[in-house]
Design a protein around this nucleic acid. Structure first.
Lengths: 149, 149
DNA sequence: CAGGTATCAATTCGTATGAATATATTGTGC
DNA sequence: GCACAATATATTCATACGAATTGATACCTG
């Protein structure tokens, strides 16, 4: 009843698109007994031999304590391992174990498949332009935030 | 160390863009003592005279119990009111009170300002194309999901 | 180097979250 | 019209979340 806002508010439309696209995969995750924060950690670890907690926090798009907890749970399940940094002993590095990598690969495959399915079902074919735009948006925003500090 | 996936995975880049764009506003929210789920509810209510819980759940992009709790907290603070449906008594309708509407308007103003600031700081000016693309993506996906059921 | 500050990540702990369930009301088939 | 499914929402409750703190290490400055 006020002037409209949300439909033109970028964070809102980003979140809405994410949710409708992610929903089916989140159901699969639940079936696998994997938390969303754990999935994000696994998906990142899969693309790195090992990574520090700080970098993992950034790329897994989750707060540091959330990542810390998720990694602890994954470690208990034998899916990841932690190593203290040698040069800088404050750092902890995390890496997938064999079984962790296997699970991560499987989940990534399912994520990809689910995404493809959803998109083709909606007659959407070329995503690459949109992905590029969003990556560019993120890069510019991140750069400008760094520049401020 | 595997073939890259995340940087081309739409849900990931959507979430990443959302986070970097939303971060500064979330800090403001915290200062106002408003939860994110509460913000989403208020922002939706602001655009409706009144709305059913089901519709609110959908548009606030949050699970039903989360919305139910958020509305309960907002009601305790006198920011929203609930009315039982007259025709269908299972429905509950929610609406802003005066003070709720005032808070919602203030928050929307700050959200808009924060977004504009972040974008201009990153030399990003025309967002409308991207917003349109994302809205179209959402509409197509939502339609195709409905068609399936 | 010693003291002070900054950084990294675990941990604490109160709270929001959300899956599952319960409750209430409305349609529906026979 | 009476059981029986379907729908809308509140509620329960175990758990993840995440703000704040702590502890430990590294960097810096005189």
């Amino acid at each position: 009843m006020n002037e409209p806002f949300l439909d033109g508010y970028l964070p809102y439309v980003l979140r809405r698109a994410d949710q409708v696209l992610s929903a089916p995969f989140y159901q699969l995750l639940t079936q696998h007994g994997v938390q969303r924060s754990e999935w994000r950690v696994l998906a990142v670890l899969r693309e790195h031999d090992s990574i520090s907690m700080t970098d993992l926090t950034t790329t897994a798009l989750s707060p540091q304590p959330t990542v810390s907890h998720a990694v602890a749970r994954l470690a208990e399940r034998g899916l990841v391992q932690r190593f203290r940094g040698t040069h800088d002993k404050r750092l902890w590095f995390v890496a997938c174990t064999e079984s962790g990598r296997a699970l991560a690969d499987k989940l990534v495959l399912e994520a990809h498949h689910t995404e493809t399915e959803a998109l083709s079902g909606a007659s959407i074919h070329d995503i690459s332009g949109l992905v590029e735009e969003l990556n560019s948006l993120h890069t510019k925003l991140a750069d400008s935030l760094v520049a401020q500090s």
